[in-house]
Amino acid sequence: KWEEIAERLREEFNINPEEAREAVEKAGGNEEEARRIVKK
């Protein structure tokens, strides 16, 4: 599940997989929260 979210974030925000994974981890697997983290 987290991998899927990280993949979507990576494609959408054009970030590297590591950044995407970190955002999802910080968000506890919550996609909306992960998006907010990435946008900062």
Rank of each mutant, 00 (worst) to 15 (best):
A34D: 00
R36T: 11
G28Y: 10
E31C: 03
R21E: 04
P17W: 15
E25S: 10
N16Y: 07
F13M: 07
V24N: 01
A6T: 07
R36W: 08
K26D: 04
K26V: 09
I5G: 01
E22L: 14
N16Q: 13
E32F: 07
E12D: 08
P17L: 15
N30S: 10
V38D: 02
W2V: 05
E19R: 08
R8A: 06
A34G: 02
E32C: 07
L9H: 00
G29K: 02
E31L: 13
V24D: 01
E12K: 05
R8W: 05
K40M: 15
R8H: 06
V24G: 01
E25M: 14
P17D: 08
E33Q: 09
E32A: 10
W2G: 04
R10K: 09
E31Q: 06
I37N: 07
R8G: 04
K39W: 11
I5H: 01
V38T: 06
A20H: 01
G29T: 01
V24I: 11
E3D: 12
G29V: 00
R8F: 05
R21K: 12
N14D: 11
E11T: 13
K26G: 04
R36V: 09
E4F: 10
K39Y: 13
K26H: 07
W2Y: 08
A6G: 04
E32G: 06
R10W: 13
E33T: 08
E12C: 08
K40G: 15
V24H: 00
R10E: 07
R8D: 03
P17T: 12
A27D: 00
L9Y: 03
R10Y: 06
F13I: 02
N30H: 07
P17Q: 14
I15N: 01
E18I: 11
K1V: 15
E7L: 13
V38M: 04
A23D: 01
R35V: 06
A6M: 15
G29W: 04
R10G: 06
W2S: 05
K1Y: 13
E31I: 09
E11S: 13
E7P: 00
R36D: 11
K39L: 15
L9R: 00
N14V: 05
G28N: 15
E33H: 14
E4P: 06
E4G: 08
A23T: 04
I15P: 02
A20C: 04
